[in-house]
Each structure stands twice: as C-alpha cells, then as structure tokens.
C-alpha cells in the first residue's frame, strides 16, 4: 500500500485533485505565512535505527485548534513532542528538519529549551499531577521560571485555575494533595499548571483518553474556551473529538502526513481515499 500512499504525501498541504466527482470542493483556505505560529519543515525523526517520521511539513496557524489523528504508532505523538523538544530526553533518538516557532528553528544550536518549553506548554495523556498540594502543582512552573514573587503567586495560581475551569471546585482545598482529586480534576490541574506559565502554544497528547464522558466534555469545553488565547495542538484517537474541538485536522499514517486541512473538509470531503477509510472506521 505504501507506494500509492507515498505519492500523495509528497506535497501534503497542497490541494489535491482526487477525481472524486463533481462534489463541490470546499475552498482550501491558504494559510498566510505570518499567521503560522508553528511550522515543521521536512521533519524526520528516528528512534534508534527506526525512522518514525518522514518529511513532515505542516503549518499550525495561531489561535486555532489543530487535531492530529491517525492510527496508533503513526507518529502523531512524536510530531507533537518534537514541537517542544520533549523527545530530547529519550535516548538514542535523532531529528532532522526544522520546527519553527514564530519563524525561528527550535532545533537550532543555542536554543534555550527551558524557555521553549515555557512558551510551548504540554498536557499529557495520563494526568500526572506532582505529589504536592493543588496550589504547589500550579505554582511549580511559576517558581522554577522565577515568575511571581510571593504576592503575585497566589493571584497567578488562581487565574490559572479559573482558566482551567477548576477554581470553584478546588478553591477551598488548595492545600490538599492534588492526588486526592478525581481523574478529570487531576487532568485540569495539569492544564492549569501548564497555563500558569503563560505559554503561547498548548500541546495536548490525548488529554481525554483516561477520562469519563463527563470529564471529557468539560475538558473539551475548556479547549473551546482556550483557543481564543492559545494556539492548541491536540492528539486524539477520538474522531468525534477531533471533529468537535478542532478547526484544522492533520491525518498521519506510518510516520507520514497524509493530509492536513480544515477539519470540516477532512471529515466531509477528504482529499485522500485512505483518510476517508480511516475516518469512516474501515481500518485503524
């Protein structure tokens, strides 16, 4: 299958003529250069000898939600983790190509990784609150980045918890351990923790995969709120979630970007047969 797949991949962001009949093609909205907050250019990635990403080029516009979808092991999480260089800590890995944040390559020599990760926050698949109090969890990033002296600290913590729609639920128990919260609340603590350091981009790696439907709905509402201020990239296995929360969707397969377009188009009129097969559940 790979050959047919690869040919379509060479210029992934280009409009693809598919010969799928006269269905009215949704206009491809070109992404102006200036609005692309994040961009990957011919990104290759290796785990040891195994190449996990093949020439991923994609643009992520500002203040939108971009969903990464694709079958397990397709590389979507790897791409996500390249965006804030979290893959650096995995031994025996190699990156080629560029990741541009506001036009500057984050893999360039001399990049301050610590500053990069402050600007590009991350929420993980499994909620990972520190075994500390709720307050200390949210304040952690502020403290290590030297943001907020004593006085400003609690105000910033409150603001972050409010943005994460958690303040009302925890305001009376900020000193208790974050591990005593429910799964959904823990995940929102992690979101609040990431928001507290005022990032510009928020990466979410399957943030709802361990949550029940009600907690998932809350996090999705939150994402919807947050996109007014943040550029969000979310990896998800849940097609409905991608359709619900994102404006743009990128479909990955076997370490390649198959298609990247407006979510509406991906879900109603995908450019590639394989995308349609995946979305309609014929495989994956």
């Amino acid at each position: 299958m790979s050959d047919t797949l690869l040919t379509g991949v060479e210029a992934p962001v280009q409009p693809v003529s598919t010969g799928r009949g006269p269905a009215p093609r949704v206009e491809d909205r070109p992404i102006p250069e200036a609005a692309a907050r994040l961009e990957t250019r011919r990104l290759d990635f290796w785990y040891g000898p195994k190449q996990a990403l093949h020439g991923i080029s994609l643009k992520i516009p500002e203040k939108t939600v971009t969903a990464f979808i694709g079958p397990s092991g397709c590389g979507k999480s790897t791409v996500l983790r390249c965006l804030n260089r979290m893959n650096d800590i995995i031994p025996d890995t190699r990156v080629e190509g560029e990741v541009l944040l506001d036009g500057r390559n984050v893999y360039a020599a001399g990049t301050d990784v610590v500053d990069l990760r402050r600007r590009v926050g991350m929420v993980f698949q499994k909620s990972n609150p520190f075994p500390k109090s709720i307050f200390d969890n949210v304040a952690y990033g502020l403290k290590i980045n030297g943001m907020g002296r004593r006085s400003g600290l609690s105000a910033r913590v409150e603001q972050a918890l409010r943005r994460a729609a958690l303040w009302d639920e925890v305001k009376d128990r900020l000193d208790t351990s974050a591990l005593g919260l429910s799964g959904g609340q823990q995940q929102r603590v992690c979101i609040a923790r990431a928001l507290a350091v005022e990032p510009e981009v928020l990466l979410m790696d399957e943030p709802c995969s361990a949550l029940d439907p009600i907690a998932t709905a809350k996090v999705e509402e939150l994402i919807y709120e947050l996109k007014r201020d943040y550029t969000i990239v979310i990896v998800t296995h849940n097609m409905q979630q991608a359709a619900r929360v994102s404006e743009r969707t990128a479909f990955f397969m076997l370490g390649r970007l198959v298609e990247h377009d407006r979510t509406e188009k991906i879900f109603t009129n995908p450019g590639q047969k394989i995308t349609e097969d995946y979305i309609t559940g014929r495989f994956g």
Binding site: G121, F124, N128, P129, F130, Y140, G141, I144, N145, R193
Partner: peptide, 20 residues
C-alpha cells in the same frame, strides 16, 4: 511521566529530579 511533566514546564533535568 512526573519527570516529563516537570520538564514540560521548563524545569531543568536536575531541578525536576530534586523538586519532583
């Protein structure tokens, strides 16, 4: 995952080790 959480917030490796 705790270490990753700390690193993702901008902690250095040593900071993550000793504070988390």
């Amino acid at each position: 995952t705790l270490r990753e959480g700390a690193l993702a917030l901008g902690a250095t490796r040593a900071r993550a080790a000793f504070s988390v």
